[in-house]
Design a protein around this nucleic acid. Structure first.
Lengths: 333, 333
DNA sequence: CGCACGAATGTATACGATTGCAGACCAATG
DNA sequence: CATTGGTCTGCAATCGTATACATTCGTGCG
């Protein structure tokens, strides 16, 4: 159906070899032939067959991206960043949603492995063994997870968390709650560590509210637990939970920021839309996606394999964005 | 690097043809050989090369999905639906973000055309000509847009819009504003038509507030324009705008739903999270994505090309979801 | 016992593009 | 004029898989 290089060559009156070179190495082709091939290609609407190209070159020009849940507002920006760099590298992205299941991730990597040059694994919840299997099947770059020996990109709690805590301290807060994420999450413990350190430094009591599921329900439950403490401010594992928490607090007649200050994590698009605007630690999602693709593509080009991140995890700095959900106490709860 | 069918065949002591058949037509292969091939494949970790397969079969097993903006909360659910059906059909999805630009869509379709068996175009803003070009390059299914002769899936304002209007009428509202989307948008005019019809029927004054950009800024401006009318309720082009509108109204001291009732469109995930929960017309995004992929895949399988939607646009019913943003007036503005 | 037939397997070719190699052609040089 | 060198072009092999066709083998029946 579609025109092939053979058709173009025939129409231009040259061999397929010349036609091919007209695109790949125009300098190797005579001006006359070049012109004729180009015109012929235009006329028949020639589009190179990527499958044939991939077969001979060994590179498919396609990378997979696996996310646990597309509807989680964290990921679209990651994808956009990835997409932008993919486009820049002349490469395509195969999207896969694991539907929150580690087993799903695993099987997705298996099927993707045969069709892509590498996979970006976002916020993977696979266990170590599955991760190793994945790495043996195809090139892997982790986003939002670190594993020694594997290439990855993650958000460094510093300087965002320290800045947030100092901000709260300046606002007069001395008792800070932390509504955490899943106990198994590395990023949760990294954030905890950063919090502990800076709280000790500036002299704030850090109150552990516990571990919660990273969704709306977790945020609601976090609010309930939080009210059992005497914290005047709270840092929440992510924005989604923070918003749910604020909503739940409102149900208890506790309003933000008059009665309580709230800091989120991520800076999802909605964080600034709501009233009150959510103070949060901005995670460079776009850059994370972009860098992940860069690393993956670079790893596939041996000549400049020494570009950096090979097998290493790169931390991208976070930034505290103060908005209306943090303030000096208007009244004691 | 990776094991090929040849390796498997050698290890199993059979020819590549037999090895191939062991996977494609197991019934044509002796039990003994079948077993040996399977074991050999397992041992070397054989993964079929999709490029080679695509080359010979002519089908790539990959479909493209083009969205104008991934960060628009409308699309993730569409993608999830598409993804789910793609997985069901044993097919992959190539994701592309057009970054809000019709020209971007156009060039994406061009590049995708050579790598996929078809493209799902979501909420495309391409002009007619570009659309025709796209259709000439590859199989196209439209989502959220209709064009005679092209396969497509869209959200039918009925019964969602009539239900919403009747609900408002029952709440005592008699003057309803409509904050519309882009003037060029077909879905905007479809919604207008549905609104007019049901308003006439139940006896409500429909006040046209104008056309706005479908983002946060459009919603804010919509709020400002709305206050120039004496509407007591408003239907907004989409949830994102509705939320921004509510936020902006709050800035004017107008609160929802006490002073004004608001109905959105889409039912994006955040619509229910906020206080007040947004009353909205729920669009079956997931089903739209799913159906789009089904249609695309079906169109590629000639034997059952008569399955239905070929060249036709299919409307999926919407549903009104009442929440807290619609109520009887507590006080007159 | 021989023939025919079906099952199982192997051989060879095709898919479309790329590329090493060699040939054709021309100009410049000795 | 022969030789060299360079430019341009074509031939043919190749990537990994699928399949039409040919071949082999065993089996059942006449």
């Amino acid at each position: 159906m579609a025109a092939t290089l053979k058709d173009v060559a025939a129409r231009a009156g040259v061999s397929v070899a010349t036609a091919s070179r007209a695109f790949q190495r125009p300098d190797m082709v005579g001006a006359r032939s070049l012109e004729r091939v180009r015109r012929a290609a235009d006329e028949v609407g020639y589009i190179p067959n990527s499958a044939a190209r991939a077969l001979i070159s060994g590179r498919r020009g396609v990378y997979g991206v696996v996310v646990p849940d597309l509807e989680n507002p964290f990921f679209p920006a990651v994808l956009k960043g990835a997409q932008a760099r993919a486009h820049h590298h002349g490469v395509q992205l195969l999207l896969a949603d694991a539907e929150e299941s580690p087993e799903g991730e695993r099987s997705l990597v298996r099927t993707l492995a045969g069709q892509v040059d590498g996979v970006v694994l976002c916020s993977s919840r696979m266990d170590e063994e599955a991760l190793l299997e994945a790495a043996s099947l195809t090139r892997i770059t982790l986003v939002n997870r670190v594993r020694p020996g594997m290439t990855g990109v993650f958000a460094d709690p510093v300087p965002g968390i320290p800045a947030a805590v100092r901000h709260l301290h300046r606002m007069g807060h001395r008792r800070l709650g932390y509504v955490g994420g899943p106990a198994t999450s590395r990023s949760d413990s990294a954030r905890r560590t950063a919090l502990e350190e800076v709280c000790r430094e500036v002299g704030i009591d850090l109150l552990d509210v516990g571990h919660f599921e990273p969704g709306v329900e977790g945020g609601r439950r976090g609010a309930e637990e939080l009210l059992l403490t005497d914290a005047t401010a709270v840092v929440v594992y992510n924005d989604l939970m923070a918003l749910a928490l604020i909503d739940r607090l409102k149900g208890f007649g506790v309003s933000v920021p008059e009665d309580l200050s709230v800091v989120g994590w991520d800076d999802i698009p909605f964080a600034s839309l709501l009233t009150p605007g959510l103070s949060t630690v901005q995670v460079p999602r776009y850059d994370m996606g972009a860098l992940a693709v860069d690393l993956l593509v670079a790893a596939g080009e041996p000549e400049r394999e020494d570009e950096g991140g090979e097998g290493r995890a790169i931390g991208l700095p976070t930034q505290f964005v103060p908005r209306a959900s943090t303030a000096r106490l208007a009244r004691e709860v």
